[in-house]
Simulated scan of single mutants.
Amino acid sequence: MGSQRDGDGSVDRPAKARWCAVTGGRGFMARHLVAALVRSGEWNVRVTDLAPTIVLGPGESEGLLGDALRDGRAVYASVDVCNLDQLIEAFEGVDVVFHTAAADPGKNNLQLHYKVNVEGTKSVIDACKICKVKRLIHTSSSAVVFDGVHGLFNVDESLPYPDKFPDAYAQTKAEAEKFVMKANGIDDLLTCCIRPGGIFGPGDMILPTLDQYGQTLFIIGDGKNYDDLVYVENVVHGHICADRTLSTMKGAQRSGGKAYFITNMEPMNLWDFLYMVQEELGYKRLFKIRIPLLIIKPISYLVEWGYKVFYHYGMCQPHILTPARIKYTTLNRTFSCNKAIEELGYKPTVTIMDGLKATVESYIQLKNKDISRERK
C-alpha cells in the first residue's frame, strides 16, 4: 500500500486508509482504542454508541478525535447493538469490527445483560456476516472463568467456564464469547476474543472513588489477595495485536476462534496497588481499615436489596458495594498471558507504575480544570 505525508510533512499514513468500526465506542477502553486506531494512520474509524450525537469530553474537541471527526477520518453513528438494521448500516464497507459494547457491570440485572451482551453480540455477528466484514475482535473479560468462590492463580485459557458465575455480567460475557468463537470461519468471518484483567487508566472510576476516601484505605477481607491489573493502553494493544494476527493466513489458522488473556503480566497485591494509587494522589501516612468478610458480606446483601428497591423507583444510582464486587476484590485472580505472547505477539507496552503515574496525572489535570471553571 502506498503512503502519503501529512500537510506538515511529519506523519506518514497509507494513501487510502481502510475503515473499521468500534461498537460502544464512547466507553472507557473504547475511547483509547479509537484514539490508537486513528493515530496509527492505518484506519478510518466508525465510532458507534447509543447516544444520538457524540459529545466530546475535556480535551477531545481540540485533540486527535476532534480533528479526525472534522476531516472525516472518524465518523459517529448512533447505534443500538440490538438493532440489526442500524448495525448493518454502520458496518457497510468496514473491514474490521472491534466489539466493545456491553451492559454496565454495576447493574446486576440478568435481563439487561442478556439483551446487550448476548443478543447484542449475536446481532453484531449477523451484521458482520451480512456486510462481509473480514474480522471481528470481541472484548470479553477475564471474569468468564471466575466462579466467585475459588481463587485463580496464573490460570490459562484451558480453564473451562464455571458452572455458576458471580454476577450477570460474567455469565453473559461468557455466553457472548462462545457465540463469537463459534462464528469463526463462517461466511469468511474471522473472530478472536480478548479477555482483559482489571483495566485502569485515564478516565476510569478508580481514582475519583479513592480520592473521596482521602487518607483512608478500606481493606475488605484479609488483604492478601493478588490481582492481574492491566493498563488501558495495553488492552488496546492486545486488540490491535489480535487484528494483525488474523490478517495473515498463518495467524488466522492459529488464532481464529480463540480467546486470550491480556494483563500487564505484573500480578500484585490488590490493596498494595490501591495504596500506591492514593500515595500518587498525594495522600501520605494512610490509615488502613480492615473490614472482615463476616461483617461486610451480610451488609452487602442488605445494601443490594435496598438499592434494588430504590433503583426500581428511580431514587438512586447503581452502587459499588455488592456481593459480587466483594468476591472480585477478595479472591486471587491472576492469569497467564503466555498464549497471547506466543500466538498474538502481545507484550505490554506500559508498565504498571508508568500507567499509574499517567492515570493520576491525567486525573489531577482534569480535576484542576474543573476547580478552575467553578471559580470562574
Rank of each mutant, 00 (worst) to 15 (best):
D85T: 11
E361T: 14
G7N: 15
K16S: 13
S40L: 03
N44Q: 12
L217T: 01
N83P: 01
V55E: 13
A21F: 09
R290H: 08
C193G: 06
I54A: 12
R254F: 07
P208L: 07
L229K: 00
Q171H: 08
T100V: 07
F261N: 09
Q253H: 14
E89N: 10
A17H: 12
V97D: 09
E60Y: 10
A242Y: 14
G151E: 04
K182A: 15
L246K: 07
G214C: 03
D163P: 00
R5G: 00
N117L: 04
K224Y: 06
G25W: 02
H239M: 14
E374H: 09
G59V: 07
Y307C: 08
V149P: 02
L69K: 02
G197C: 05
E177V: 02
F28G: 02
Y346Q: 08
D370A: 15
T172C: 13
A21P: 01
V133H: 11
Y313V: 07
S78L: 07
K327H: 07
L69E: 01
A90D: 11
F273A: 12
G2I: 00
I291P: 02
F98C: 00
A358Y: 06
I194W: 11
K297S: 01
D163I: 03
S141Y: 03
G148D: 00
V96K: 11
R290F: 06
G282L: 04
D188L: 14
